[in-house]
């Protein structure tokens, strides 16, 4: 809801399509292309006529913009749809900075914060500066970089369940790095990373909060 608040405050009309469900990444990443195609087709049909699609997740965004074309290889009609749609799909911070060209949203969040680069936002979408620029303009916010900002939190979808001990160990390393900054909040653009980090922080008994970038930007602290 925070993302909707921010966008509406900027004067955009936000629409939530009740038909929407999932970008299809879980099946795609698990090797089940047929099932992924069914769900991705549903996505295309749901959002085909939208002006701009803003996604509060780096991972879902890159699924759509980087993998849909491959998923529909050999299906000319769907591929055409993908070609038309992908230039209008943006991750939230990418949309604000690159498209809407805002960086100061008048937010205030008087806390010490560290930013976790989600793998897909960073490496597939190339988003390193945009979220930091947005955070830099927030009143009262002190941004401290952690040593392992670019290291994976260990979520990885089904990986976190099928290889739970490895995933958990990865999360613990990340947590150590977060704790070392002395921050009270860790911010990211992917809810799945935040869920993983929240679980690992809580398990280790730390009181550091996990917040989505949109929540920070919506905050009037």
């Amino acid at each position: 809801m925070a993302m909707v608040d921010v966008l509406e405050r900027l004067g955009f009309t936000v629409e939530f399509r009740r038909e929407q469900t999932c970008c299809a990444q879980p099946a795609f990443n698990s090797g089940y292309h047929t099932e992924a195609r069914t769900v991705a087709a549903h996505f295309l049909d749901t959002f085909g006529d939208a002006d701009t699609i803003v996604v509060p997740s780096g991972s879902c965004t890159s699924m759509i913009t980087h993998h849909y074309a491959e998923l529909f290889a050999g299906d000319a009609k769907r591929q055409q749809q993908v070609r038309e749609l992908t230039p209008r799909v943006f991750e939230f911070s990418q949309f604000l900075v690159d498209v809407a060209q805002f960086d100061d949203l008048g937010a205030s969040f008087p806390h010490k914060v560290t930013y976790h680069d989600s793998c897909h936002a960073l490496r597939e979408l190339g988003l390193k500066d945009a979220p930091r620029r947005l955070l830099g303009k927030v009143r009262g916010l002190e941004l401290v970089e952690m040593g392992a900002a670019e290291e994976c939190c260990g979520f990885g979808g089904l990986f976190s369940v099928k290889f739970a001990p490895i995933s958990g160990a990865m999360a613990r390393t990340k947590v150590e790095s977060i704790v070392a900054t002395g921050a009270t909040h860790v911010v990211s653009v992917d809810s799945s990373c935040l869920m993983q980090l929240r679980g690992a922080l809580a398990r280790a008994g730390h009181r550091i909060e996990t917040v989505h970038l949109a929540e920070v930007l919506a905050s009037r602290g």
Partner: peptide
Amino acid sequence: AWRAERDFPAVPEKSFRALW
């Protein structure tokens, strides 16, 4: 499997759909 390694996040009171 999840819980063996980390806590499960607190569940929101209402879904996004309901809030919307």
